[in-house]
Every structure is written in structure tokens, then in C-alpha cells.
């Protein structure tokens, strides 16, 4: 301690903290520097709305990928949000505390499973099931939605549980003391009091789903086309970058970076929305 002194320690810690922020800034700068000139060159609207992605012919329309990402993310919400919120309600309001203390860390462990393993299960188990029972190639919007829906469960459940547990016990007591049943208390008071946290958990889950790459590459089929049903193959924005970056050069390479810029902006918007939702809750207290 005497070697560096109080001030020295503080400076070292400050430097480490800043290094995380500077990494973020550098990544943002790098992607924008590589991608933004292309967007100006090609035109943002052209880039987003055209359906032709033919890099050899100089056509860079990412609309099919945008549609795919939106579809898959929406599907993941349909699968993951109700399951996650219902699971969080069960664990926080009905399950005995010891059960919750065991199950919650186990669910959080889901987040630690590498995404390639999710993709593997999707390819080996889910896609054949969909192909056999529902038709289509199996590797599809539906498969990706289910896999992503499961992948966002830890985010949704964990943050929802935290916000439900933060609802003062006095609200529940007040409701029960007025003759409300447990279920009335949950949906008329507890969920309302926790709704901003629950909303934030779903938005953060969306961010996770839209940014996921490996699992989506493995289960979505990667065909560049606008899907007309949940059973068709699609290629998401993230998958497009990952699949083509290794051999792309020149304008093609820049177009992939520009795709990264679009993703970056979407994720920033989602995370800001989540923060606003959480802060809105803090302000009302």
C-alpha cells in the first residue's frame, strides 16, 4: 500500500474502468468508420429496402435479412416472454423460497451454455422434428424462434424475478387484507408494480435475440429470401455478416460493416429503452 499509495491505487482502478469504456468506443468507431461510408455511397434507404443481395453484381439490399431478424426476434419473444414471465411469477410468488434459491441459479446457468451447443441441439433435435411433423426444410424461422426463445429465458426470468421480489410485501398484504385472492393480488398489484422491470427484462431479451449469431446460423437455414411462413429458411443480419466476412473484399466487405452499423444502432436503441423503463420505475418510487 505504501508502495503505490492511496492515490496511485485510485488511478490504476480508474484506468481499468476506463479501458472497458474505451473498448466500447473503439469498437463503435471502427464499425462506423468501415461501414458509414458505404451507407452514404449506396444510400441508407436503398440499403435497407432493396431485396437483392448479390455482392458479385454489386447489389447490396439487406431487406430480406432485416425481415428475417425481425421475424426470428419476434418469434423468440412469442416463445420466451410468456414462458419467462410465467416462470418468474411462479418462482417468486408460489414456489417455496428454498426451491427458488436452487432453481434461479440453475436457470441463470442456461446463459453460460455456449450458443453453439444450442445450435447443435436445434440441428439434431428440433429441425428434424419440425421437418417431419410440420413440413418444410426444418431449418427455419420456427426452429430459430424456439431456440432463441429458450436462450433468452435466463435474461427474462432473472430480471423479472428481481423486479417482482422488489415489490414491497406491504402491497401484497394490503391486497390480501382487502379480501383479494392470491391470483387477484398478483395480476392487479404485483405485476403492475413490477411491470417496468418485467418490460426491461423482455427488451433486454430482445437485444440478446437479435444479436445472437452462431445458434441462428445453425438452425435458421440461411437462405437469403423474405419468409412467407414460419417454416421457411431465412438468414439473419448477424448470420449474413458471419457467413460472408471471411471472403468479402472491397464494397462487399464495407456492406457487411454497414450491416454491423445497423445492428449496433438497433441494439443501442433496445438497451436505452430498457434503461428508460428501469429508470421510470425508480423515479416513481
Amino acid at each position: 500500500m505504501t508502495l503505490i499509495g492511496e492515490k496511485g491505487v485510485r488511478r490504476i482502478l480508474l484506468a481499468t474502468a476506463l479501458s472497458a469504456i474505451s473498448a466500447l468506443l473503439l469498437i463503435a468507431l471502427f464499425i462506423i468508420k468501415e461501414g458509414l461510408p458505404f451507407i452514404f455511397h449506396y444510400g441508407l434507404w436503398n440499403f435497407l429496402s432493396s431485396s437483392d443481395w448479390e455482392p458479385q453484381a454489386g447489389k447490396f439490399g439487406i431487406f430480406p435479412m432485416v425481415a428475417a431478424s425481425l421475424w426470428v426476434t419476434f418469434g423468440a419473444m412469442v416463445v420466451g416472454a410468456p414462458l419467462g414471465v410465467a416462470g418468474a411469477l411462479f418462482l417468486s410468488e408460489f414456489a417455496p423460497r428454498p426451491v427458488m434459491r436452487v432453481i434461479k441459479p440453475m436457470i441463470e446457468l442456461l446463459a453460460a451454455i455456449p450458443s453453439v451447443v444450442y445450435g447443435f441441439i436445434g440441428v439434431m433435435v428440433l429441425a428434424p422434428l419440425i421437418r417431419d411433423y410440420l413440413g418444410g426444410p426444418g431449418l427455419s424461422v420456427l426452429a430459430a424462434s424456439i431456440i432463441l426463445g429458450i436462450m433468452i429465458l435466463p435474461t427474462v426470468i432473472s430480471i423479472s424475478i428481481d423486479s417482482i421480489m422488489a415489490v414491497p410485501q406491504s402491497y401484497r398484504e394490503g391486497s390480501l387484507a382487502l379480501g383479494a385472492t392470491v391470483w387477484q393480488t398478483i395480476h392487479m398489484v404485483t405485476i403492475r408494480a413490477a411491470r417496468s422491470g418485467i418490460l426491461a427484462s423482455i427488451i433486454l431479451g430482445m437485444g440478446r435475440a437479435i444479436g445472437e449469431t452462431m445458434a441462428v446460423i445453425m438452425v435458421a437455414g440461411n437462405a437469403v429470401k423474405i419468409p412467407h411462413s414460419a417454416l421457411e429458411s431465412v438468414r439473419s443480419l448477424t448470420a449474413n455478416i458471419a457467413l460472408e466476412m471471411s471472403y468479402a473484399t472491397g464494397l462487399h466487405r464495407q456492406a457487411l460493416f454497414a450491416t454491423g452499423v445497423i445492428l449496433f444502432v438497433v441494439i443501442i436503441i433496445l438497451n436505452s429503452a430498457a434503461m428508460v423503463a428501469i429508470r421510470g420505475k425508480a423515479a416513481r418510487k
Binding site: 414491497p168 406491504s170 402491497y171 394490503g174 391486497s175 398489484v189 403492475r192 408494480a193 416513481r284
Partner: peptide, 8 residues
């Protein structure tokens, strides 16, 4: 109750 607990 001891502390006023109106619902939000």
C-alpha cells in the same frame, strides 16, 4: 398497516 401502503 403500520406504514401507509396504498397501491401504486
Amino acid at each position: 398497516f403500520q406504514r401507509p401502503n396504498p397501491f401504486p
